[in-house]
């Protein structure tokens, strides 16, 4: 017999680890990835590869040469950031913009704060918003699903065919033409399946929901943020719609278009940048939902999910401080 091991209790541990959790998230994203391959063809695969590889590369380089700490690229977080970043861009994005976006996401969004676990913002969203502001034209040039498949290759889009293969997103139509403009576009079944223009990962609500349910089922995420986020955005959109159906789109439209579902299940629930307690998570979800609809309806951008989540990320430390979990044996503090 060798030496006995001495350690504090507990002596049994749940069979879990960061990579395991991360890979479960990756599994959950597979349906949406398949949909994007189907809709956008090889161009989508190209963007995925560039995004993931450059995220890995930058994480490795920064850890190796700048931080000079342990190298943790195997924990799966770079993979998730890469996929999410790719989900958030149109498939026609030039390759070098994708690389720059990955650098910002990993370098500025994550590593500058000390790496995984310390970043206040969701790295993929940091990268996405950076790209949206820096390259507004390329980032809002949305390829049409299916039609655009054959026009893409690893080289990117040919400018000559641009007008035939790209078109606006439903939210863009809403922004420009108002509710009347919408009736010309597709029906709800198409929207749910992903028959619309948009970022690669956001188009198919159904695929995203399947993955989201998997995450909930495997207890990777808790229900608080998704439910609060969906509920509040739906409620606010419904109020506006009831007030004036000719001016505002109906709430179902808001749910299935744009990046809402993607944001709800995969980005707002990011462990690091969302609140800890159940109460805090509900506040976070409600805040993000309200902000999303406000930006969509009253803001100058057609889509507000990324901004809403980033804003709530910024509020997370405050929420964590204010909304503690329910303590056992302490009466909830009441105003005397």
């Amino acid at each position: 017999m060798d030496k006995l091991v001495i350690s504090g209790s507990p002596h049994v541990h749940q069979n879990t680890s960061i990579p395991k959790l991360m890979y479960m998230v990756v599994i959950a994203m597979i349906p949406a990835m398949l949909v994007s391959f189907y809709m956008f063809g090889l161009g989508a695969l190209r963007v995925f590869l560039i995004a993931v590889l450059s995220c890995y590369l930058f994480e490795y380089l920064i850890q190796r040469y700048l931080i000079k700490g342990p190298i943790t690229i195997n924990d799966g977080s770079a993979l998730i950031t890469g996929i999410l970043l790719a989900f958030n861009v149109p498939s026609s994005i030039p390759w070098w913009m994708m690389v720059v976006g990955a650098l910002v996401a990993i370098g500025m969004g994550k590593m500058s704060f000390g790496g995984l676990g310390k970043n206040p913002f969701n790295p993929a969203l940091v990268g996405r918003v950076f790209m949206l502001i820096s390259f507004p034209v390329e980032m809002t040039r949305w390829p049409k699903p299916i039609v655009s498949r054959e026009y893409f290759s690893f080289a990117g889009v040919d400018d000559k065919v641009l007008d035939t293969v790209t078109g606006p997103t439903p939210l863009g139509v809403l922004q420009e033409k108002g509710v009347e403009g919408l009736s010309q576009t597709s029906n709800y079944a198409d929207l749910m399946l992903g028959q619309m223009g948009g970022s690669m990962g956001e188009i198919s609500a159904i695929a995203l929901v399947i993955g989201g349910l998997y995450l909930l089922f495997r207890r990777v995420i808790s229900w608080h943020i998704p439910v609060a986020y969906l509920g509040s955005s739906f409620a606010l959109a419904a109020i506006l719609w009831f007030a004036n159906p000719t001016q505002y789109a109906d709430p179902f439209f808001h749910l299935v278009t744009g990046g809402l579902i993607l944001g709800v299940f995969y980005m707002a629930t990011d462990y690091v940048s969302s609140p800890i307690s159940a109460k805090g998570q509900i506040i976070f979800g409600v805040g993000a939902g309200v902000l999303t609809i406000l930006i969509r309806v009253f803001g100058s951008y057609p889509e507000g999910v990324s901004f809403a989540i980033l804003l709530m990320n910024a509020a997370t430390p405050l929420i964590n401080n204010r909304f503690k979990p329910k303590r056992f044996g302490h009466k909830p503090a009441k105003a005397a």
């Binding site: 030496k3 006995l4 091991v5 001495i6 350690s7 504090g8």
Partner: peptide, 19 residues
């Protein structure tokens, strides 16, 4: 010489309290 293996956080305070 080492007779048992301590597997815990690297602080004397805890190691002292443990064993």
């Amino acid at each position: 010489p080492q007779k048992v293996l301590y597997d815990g956080p690297n602080t004397c305070q805890f190691a002292h309290a443990l064993s």
